[in-house]
Every structure is written in structure tokens, then in C-alpha cells.
Amino acid sequence: MRKVRAVLVSAVVVLVASLTIGAIPAQAEAARLAGVFRDHSECERIGTQGVSQGWWDDYSCQWDSRYRYYFLYA
């Protein structure tokens, strides 16, 4: 019984690792959080500044009502 359990645990670990490694490239293309702001104008200002400075190519400011903040994604 111990050998069967050891084989099953090993198989589960390998399966989880392979699923995790397969998901990493899809997440790599997602926008990263670049800032959190109370005002939409401040979020837009920093987003525009980031584009002009070459920090990122594009950005978006998204309001999250749960936290009551604007999140800058670049």
C-alpha cells in the first residue's frame, strides 16, 4: 500500500508541476500592475508619462469599487 501511495503522490506532483509550467507563458503576456491611485487624473498622468519615458508601450486605468482606487496596468 505504501508503494502505491508513493507512486500516486509522485504522479500528482508531476501533474501539478506540468500544469503550472504550462500556464506561465500565458501569464507573461498579461499587463502588470504599475501603480495605484485615488484620482483618475493622477492615474492618467502617470500612464502618459510612462509612455513618453518609454517605460511601457500602452496603459489602462481601471477603477475597482471594492478598493475604491484606480489601478494602472501597463
Results as ranks from 00 to 15, higher is better:
Trp56Ser: 07
Trp63Arg: 12
Gly47Ser: 06
Ala11Val: 14
Arg68Trp: 00
Arg32Ala: 07
Gly54His: 00
Tyr70Gln: 08
Glu44Ala: 15
Ala30His: 06
Gly47Phe: 02
Asp58Ser: 08
Asp58Met: 03
Thr20Gln: 05
Ser41Pro: 05
Ala30Trp: 00
Ile46Pro: 02
Ala11Tyr: 01
Arg2Leu: 08
Trp63Phe: 12
Cys43His: 05
Gly47Leu: 05
Ile24Tyr: 01
Glu29Pro: 03
Gln53Asp: 08
Tyr73Lys: 09
Gln62Thr: 15
Cys43Ser: 06
Gln53Thr: 12
Ala6Asn: 15
His40Gln: 15
Glu29Gly: 15
Val14Ser: 06
Gln53Val: 07
Val12Ser: 15
Met1Gly: 14
Arg66Asn: 13
Arg2Thr: 07
Glu29His: 13
Ala30Leu: 08
Arg2Phe: 01
Ala11Phe: 02
Ser52Trp: 01
Ser18His: 04
Ile24Asn: 04
Ala11Leu: 07
His40Val: 12
Lys3His: 09
Val51Thr: 14
Val16Asp: 01
Leu19Gln: 12
Cys61Asn: 13
Tyr69Arg: 11
Val12Asp: 07
Ser18Leu: 10
Ser41Ala: 15
Met1Ile: 08
Ala34Val: 06
Trp63Thr: 13
Ala23Arg: 09
Val16Lys: 01
Val16Gly: 02
Tyr69Trp: 15
Asp39Gln: 11
Val16Pro: 03
Arg38Ile: 10
Ala74Tyr: 00
Val13Glu: 03
Val12Glu: 05
Leu15Phe: 10
Cys61Phe: 00
Val16Tyr: 02
Gln49Gly: 03
Leu8Met: 12
Val7Phe: 01
Asp57Asn: 12
Arg45Gly: 12
Leu33Gly: 03
Gly50Thr: 04
Ala26Arg: 09
Ala23Ile: 08
Glu44Gly: 11
Tyr69Gln: 14
Asp58His: 09
Ser52Val: 08
Tyr69Lys: 12
Trp55Leu: 10
Val7Gln: 06
Val9Cys: 06
Gln49Thr: 05
Gly50Asn: 05
Ala23Asn: 09
Trp63Gly: 09
Phe71Thr: 13
Val12Ile: 10
Trp56Cys: 10
Phe37Lys: 10
Glu44Trp: 05
Ala23Asp: 15
Ala31Thr: 09
Trp56Ala: 11
Gln49Asp: 14
Ile46Ala: 03
Tyr59His: 14
Cys43Pro: 00
Ala26Val: 15
His40Leu: 15
Met1Gln: 09
Gln49Ala: 11
Cys61Met: 04
Trp63Val: 08
Phe37Ala: 00
Gly50Ile: 03
Gly22Ile: 06
Leu15Asp: 01
Trp55Tyr: 15
